[in-house]
């Protein structure tokens, strides 16, 4: 029996809100619990509004995609302000979420050395646990392209790791 919109949203929230929250926590740090809830709420609001557009066979990637947009909005706002502030006070441009939370120096350095797109696909795969097919859905690219991007990113990550540990 088909579920009502309310039932579907409730199911989506209970099944995937943790994954969505973790996606956001890994990329916004530090983040208070209430602020994290607010961001998850933003994702759920979009889910509700676009409920009919969420593919039943790709609900999690779709929600991660929304979270990615929410994150982009947050970062664009922050980047704009950061750029303004940076004009007045130099800041550490290399700082990233990984800098704060990754204790393994080599891992952190390798992640930092990667391009944004390489780092994103690495983290989506190894931290968020997305498969190649899910990566393609989140990134709006073909599965083949996702596999190639992931493979290349892994290669570059490994190179950075090996170079760092051979120094």
């Amino acid at each position: 029996m088909a579920s009502s919109p309310e039932q579907r949203l409730t199911r989506l929230a209970h099944e995937h809100s943790t994954a969505v929250a973790n996606y956001l926590r890994r990329r916004l740090y530090p983040l208070s619990a209430s602020d994290l809830d607010d961001l998850v709420d933003e994702v759920l609001v979009v889910c509700w509004r676009r409920l009919d557009s969420i593919p039943e066979d790709a609900e999690l990637p779709w929600m991660i995609g929304v979270a990615r947009n929410v994150l982009s909005n947050a970062r664009r706002s922050q980047n704009r302000r950061s750029a303004f502030v940076a004009s007045l006070s130099p800041s550490d441009d290399d700082a990233s979420a990984e800098d704060y939370v990754v204790a393994d120096t080599a891992i952190r350095d390798a992640l930092t050395a990667l391009s944004d797109s390489d780092r994103e696909i690495i983290l989506l795969h190894f931290w968020d646990g997305l498969s190649t097919e899910q990566l393609s859905q989140v990134l709006s690219i073909t599965t083949n392209a996702a596999a190639v991007r992931l493979s290349r990113a892994q290669g570059r990550f490994k190179d950075f790791m090996e170079n760092a540990e051979n120094v």
Binding site: L9, T18, A21, R26, S34, L44, W127
Partner: peptide, 24 residues
């Protein structure tokens, strides 16, 4: 790389998910 995941061991629980869903 997986061990470096910052959220490992720190489970997320929404403070008031049911109320949020009711509002949404």
């Amino acid at each position: 790389l997986r061990a470096a995941d910052p959220v490992v061991g720190a489970p997320y629980v929404h403070a008031n998910l049911d109320a949020t869903l009711s509002r949404i």
